[in-house]
Design a protein around this nucleic acid. Structure first.
Lengths: 227, 227
DNA sequence: CGAAAAATTGATCGACATCAATCTGTGTGG
DNA sequence: CCACACAGATTGATGTCGATCAATTTTTCG
């Protein structure tokens, strides 16, 4: 599946919006606020945005497509920690450590905005509102997230589908019908289980008429949190 | 078990240190930097520091004792998301949302420092270094943490013990011999498993001479990540 | 079309959950 | 002080969900 699961989102639906606006990176007077002056970066499916330990120079905002944040265990196995959807900001840990803490890889063709840290740190010492906007951005990211790798397999799979739906909706995309954007293997890694188990549960939800599914294309019909 | 698992840590070992220093909350000239001018707050075991949805007014730094960050499911069951040890900063999500996002409860008698947000926001608009220190603090908190509720039960239990050891050591406390600070039930909740399973694994590690254990008092002997 | 990757499906096994009983420690009131 | 109650912890027997092994089927892509 090499098509992006989503079209590009509008700047105003992005977590980085306020920071861009105050940094003068979005041209004024644009109705959607989608005309930007900052750098765009495109990635093909499977390519890395950055890797753990690498010196950090930029913050990124996902505009289109999905990425995975992964960790490589002692055995060399890759474990997916989170998936990143349009509107997410990546690399926020770079302010403190000066280096990225995980590998981030495109699941599909991805377009994201790149903001050099140098530009930000230079500006936030002058523009008070920009410092406040950065503090807000980081603050929201610092709340512990609900873990997807907990509870029964049914809860995990349903949890992932509902989480993706919630995210897409929040960004102005379709939350009822969307692409998973990842293979069963990647879902299994994210949910800390096995590919066969994921497949079986997806089919089960399908038989129960809770979802429609063809490959990676999902439609939520009557899926509920505890189901 | 109503005794705190640790003595108080030094200010210089705390994540909030730089913010306090720049905010003028630590009196200068103190060798240890432990003489503070901010407000202290003490909690008895089982009492709440704050709860989800409550309007946020302060940031907290743990000085002594441990706390749990919990989430209450639809069924009313409490699930522990993280445990918080001395030096940790709590409530950082408050900058963005103006309210706390989880319940935080003392596992033992706890002493923590309280920093009113009003005081911080007032000062960081004047003191540039303080804004930078806050951005650093939040930045470090925004990196996804390694999940303890993944892998086999052995990996989870060993992971918890090693994580606690790492934290205590980092804060200048004893990382080889310490108190778990929580019941088996609470460990089970944190690791997404059952109390009996936790008990059995702890006993197994004991029989294998990887740890010493009496109640909540642990000594690490030869415990390794993958065991 | 044909090769390779992804996904589904089935059979069997094992780790952890569940149910149940006992043990241990701690605080309380007689 | 001791008997008692109660919560926490341990231990055992059994059941079940998800892992593992294995074989197809479906989809993707050159």
């Amino acid at each position: 599946m090499t098509t992006p699961s989503t079209g590009p989102i509008a700047c105003r639906a992005c977590d980085l919006h306020e920071v861009c606006r105050l940094g003068g990176l979005i041209a004024l007077g644009d109705r959607n606020g989608t005309h930007r002056t900052g750098a765009l970066r495109t990635l093909r499916a499977g390519t890395r945005l950055y890797r753990a330990g690498e010196p950090a120079h930029s913050l990124f905002a996902v505009r289109q497509g999905m990425l995975k944040t992964v960790e490589v265990g002692t055995d060399g196995e890759e474990r997916i920690i989170t998936v990143n959807t349009p509107g997410d900001v990546l690399g926020t840990e770079a302010f403190g450590r000066r280096m990225y803490s995980h590998d981030v890889v495109a699941l599909q063709p991805v377009v994201c905005c790149e903001l050099p840290l140098s530009l930000l740190s230079e500006q936030y010492s002058r523009v008070r509102e920009l410092a406040a906007a950065l503090i807000n951005l980081l603050s929201r990211a610092s709340a512990p997230r609900a873990a997807l790798a907990r509870g029964s397999i049914r809860e995990r799979v349903a949890g992932l589908l509902l989480e993706l739906a919630r995210r897409f909706e929040q960004r102005g995309l379709d939350g009822r019908r969307f692409s998973l954007g990842m293979t069963r293997q990647e879902i299994a890694s994210l949910l800390d289980t096995r590919i066969e188990t994921v497949s079986r549960m997806i089919q089960k939800l399908h038989r129960e008429r809770a979802i429609e599914i063809t490959g990676q294309q999902v439609t939520l019909l009557s899926l509920k949190p505890t189901g």
